[in-house]
Amino acid sequence: MVDKVLRRVNGQNQQYTPITSSAGAADAGKIPALGADGKLDPTLYNAGSGPASRSIPASEAIAAGKLVNMYANAGVVNVRLADNSNGRPAHGYVLAAVASSASATVYDLDGVNSQLTGLTPGSTYYLGTAGGVVTPALDATSATAGSIDQKIGVALSATELDTDDYDYVVL
């Protein structure tokens, strides 16, 4: 629910619902409102400010908070779940679920992924399977041979992971 404000139109008071996202120039002069998460939608920021993200087609369904891998799919960059067991390093994450073939808003690994659960604040997390995270890091054993060991970031809370773009090692 978005709170309404009053505005004066042709001498009469009218209720007006502020916008929670922007379509660009068509929304010039409109009043913004905070979204359900209590924050401004990234479409309301000036270009070059706010979290770095891009829209990329998803080649599979991806849940909110999952780490994603960018790859060439028939000559077009797509995203899929990052996975330490099958050679798919993490390049970013999504904050909203996306269906297969839909456009995913992919955030760079240098922001806060706020869509996770069960994290231990202060703990370091690494790429897991199916877009998830694990702790501790993988050890180089015969059971993990060929897996990716990629540091992802440090938990700020039970639901927030401060990510960074670390390099990875194939064990």
Rank of each mutant, 00 (worst) to 15 (best):
M1A: 13
M1C: 12
M1F: 09
K4H: 07
K4I: 04
L6W: 14
R8P: 00
V9D: 13
Q14A: 07
Q15K: 13
Q15H: 14
Y16F: 13
Y16A: 10
Y16S: 06
P18G: 09
P18L: 12
T20P: 00
S22G: 05
A23R: 11
A25Y: 13
D27N: 13
K30D: 01
I31D: 11
L34S: 05
A36D: 15
G38M: 05
K39E: 06
Y45M: 15
S49Y: 12
G50M: 01
G50Q: 02
S55C: 03
S55L: 05
E60H: 02
A61S: 15
A61E: 12
A61W: 08
A61F: 12
A63F: 02
A63N: 04
G65E: 01
L67Q: 02
V68S: 01
Y71N: 07
N73G: 04
A74S: 15
V76Q: 06
N78S: 14
A82H: 01
A82P: 03
G87Y: 02
P89Q: 04
A90N: 03
H91D: 07
H91Y: 11
G92T: 02
A96Y: 14
A97C: 13
V98N: 08
V98L: 10
A99G: 08
A99Q: 13
A102G: 12
S103G: 09
A104R: 03
A104S: 07
T105Q: 09
V106W: 02
V106D: 00
D108V: 04
D108S: 10
L109A: 02
D110P: 00
D110M: 06
Q115H: 13
T117W: 06
T117D: 13
T120Q: 14
T120G: 05
T120C: 04
S123F: 07
L127T: 05
L127W: 01
L127N: 08
T129S: 06
A130K: 00
G132F: 00
V133R: 05
A137S: 12
L138F: 12
D139K: 15
D139L: 14
A140I: 03
T141G: 12
T144V: 01
G146N: 08
S147K: 11
S147C: 09
K151F: 07
I152H: 09
V154W: 09
L156I: 09
S157K: 08
A158G: 12
A158I: 12
T159Q: 14
E160K: 10
T163M: 14
D164I: 09
D165G: 07
D165M: 09
D165L: 12
D167I: 10
L171D: 03
